[in-house]
Nucleic acid binder design. Structure first.
Length: 477
RNA sequence: CGGCGCGUGGCUCAGCUUGGUAGAGCGCCACGUUCGGGACGUGGAGGUCGCAAGUUCAAAUCUUGUCGCGCCGACCA
């Protein structure tokens, strides 16, 4: 029964993972395509997920001293150009504004692809003394990157995100903040989204344009592809020098600030879909789910059924986010609909149940049916939601571990990526040439140099020279 | 930006080869019967066939161009 495919509209993920993803995004009504190429309309059920992500992360940010601000969405060309690596990294994908009304602008402006330059321009005038530091600001906004190929949530030309930008008196403070925020992301992904991550550092080749070091949390999707799910950058004082952000320190000397930036995007919604979803549709981890329990009345036109459903909703609203599906569809329809939309729990209540003083609870993740008396249901629901949250993380971790391989020779490395899909742990000499070779041979990239290192062998998996680091490799979104 | 595929009611598509009155299923609306895993009956609304030029007595159909979408590569959150 559990493997029977009930929702014909959703393509099976084994058949065509990309189509499965698109089907879910559409059938769960998360987005709609628009007339604007590469940009999506986020629908209420999709946006509600983002709002939950936002409010939880915002709370966690603020607990570490972050304050929210808002910067302009336009960046004058001269500002964007100040930091050489940065402009080289972003120039190919920025959108330009050339006219104001009918008049050509004296200087064209791009629509922000990221706001380092704006924050720098701002900090330049806002920071004078060590007493002004640290600056720990964040903004929730959208950014624009003129992507060639787009996919809902994973890559669109405009996307929603948060970008934190901080300025510190010392390199050590900046490094601590960079790591601290990476940990905020890692904890958030695991606790709230039930997505296990690998924490580590990006290689020189993969790091952010203009950064001294980029840290990342990498997650593994159901199809074995990797998704960079959050990043945190340490800029050292490179930007400060380019933008001339100096302060007078305690020792009465002029110093450059040390900066960081860090962000997550609506891409996280793509990660939720691809880590937890199944062939029946979306599966939302309870903590992030806008609706945690959907009550489905059976024979709702019979007297007392809907009343009971509403009564249960009112009672259970104290322990969960609840809705009643009182549309005039048949119960079978509503079951499928609830599954496609990923509601963690479904509660079925009909005349027979009311008579017996019970109801049926169904877990979305395992589709296990549980009978509960109407007296105990208010205690049962939060308990089940907690169990699901925990088990979803465990399942995702088990899947990731089962799809994490090791390779000590290049033949072995190639064999794994030819036959399987997932992360491969392998030793690396530290040179860019090997990364390029691996990419050319297998379209595999280094995902990160994990903080938790292991020694698998003494030599680089690619060139055979002495190895420096163990690296996670994978095919990425 | 390269390769492949696709644009016809809200959705999925047929029709195009061989030019001649725009179709189906689903969805939608109304009424009735139903209701524990996508129910059924009856009636109804809804399309300048992506756009533009061309060929023709006549174009959804042929030609050219163009725009958009999807997937795969390169680039990227």
């Amino acid at each position: 029964m559990a493997d029977k495919k009930m929702v014909e509209e959703i393509t099976s993920m084994d058949e065509d993972f990309a189509q499965w993803y698109t089907d879910i995004v559409r059938k769960a009504e998360l987005i709609e395509y628009t007339s604007v190429k590469g940009c999506m309309a986020i629908k209420p059920d999709g946006y509600a997920i983002w709002e939950n992500i936002q409010s939880e992360l915002d709370k966690r940010f603020k607990a570490t001293g972050v304050r929210n601000v808002y910067m302009p969405m336009f960046i004058p060309e001269s500002l964007l150009e100040k930091e050489k690596d940065h402009v080289e990294g972003f120039a190919p994908e920025v959108a330009w504004v050339t006219h104001g009304g009918l008049e050509p602008l004296q200087e064209r402006m791009c629509v922000r692809p990221t706001s380092e330059t704006l924050f720098c321009d701002f900090y330049k005038n806002d920071v004078h003394s060590y007493r002004d530091l640290p600056k720990v600001y964040n903004q929730w906004c959208s950014v624009v990157r003129w992507e060639k190929e787009t996919r809902p949530f994973l890559r669109s030309r405009e996307f929603l995100w948060q970008e934190g930008h901080t300025a510190h008196a010392t390199a050590e403070d900046a490094e601590n903040r960079t790591v601290q925020m990476l940990n905020v992301y890692a904890d958030f992904l695991e606790d709230f989204l039930a997505i296990p991550v690998i924490k580590g550092q990006k290689t020189e080749k993969e790091k952010f344009a203009g950064a001294e070091a980029t840290y990342t949390v990498e997650a593994l999707m159901h199809d074995g592809k990797a998704l960079q799910s959050g990043t945190s950058h340490n800029f050292g004082n490179g930007f400060a020098k380019a933008f001339d952000i100096q302060f007078t320190d305690k020792d009465n000397t002029l110093k450059y600030v040390y900066q960081t930036s860090w962000g997550v995007t609506t891409r996280l919604i793509g990660a939720i879909i691809m880590v937890h979803g199944d062939n029946e549709g979306l599966v939302l981890p309870p903590r992030v789910a806008p609706v945690q329990l959907c009550i489905i009345p059976i024979q709702q036109k019979k007297e007392g059924v809907l009343d009971k459903a509403y009564e249960l909703r009112d009672k259970l609203s104290a322990v969960a986010r609840v809705k009643v599906d009182d549309t005039d569809k048949t119960p079978g329809w509503k079951f499928s609909e609830a599954e496609m939309r990923g509601y963690p729990l479904r509660l079925e209540i009909g005349p027979k149940d009311i008579e017996a003083g019970k109801c049926v609870l169904v877990r979305r993740d395992t589709r296990e049916k549980i009978e509960a008396s109407l007296d105990e249901v208010a205690a049962k629901v939060p308990e089940l939601l907690e169990t699901m949250q925990k088990e979803m993380l465990e399942r995702a971790r088990a899947h990731r571990d089962a799809h994490t391989y090791t390779a000590t020779s290049y033949d072995e490395f190639k064999k794994v990526f030819t036959e399987k899909s997932g992360f491969v742990k392998a030793m690396w000499c530290g040179c860019k040439e090997c990364e390029e070779q691996i990419k050319a041979d297998l379209s595999v990239t280094s995902r990160c140099i994990p903080f938790e290192q292991e020694t698998l062998s003494d030599v680089c998996v690619c060139c055979g020279k002495p190895a420096q680091k163990m690296v996670y490799w994978g095919r990425a979104y």
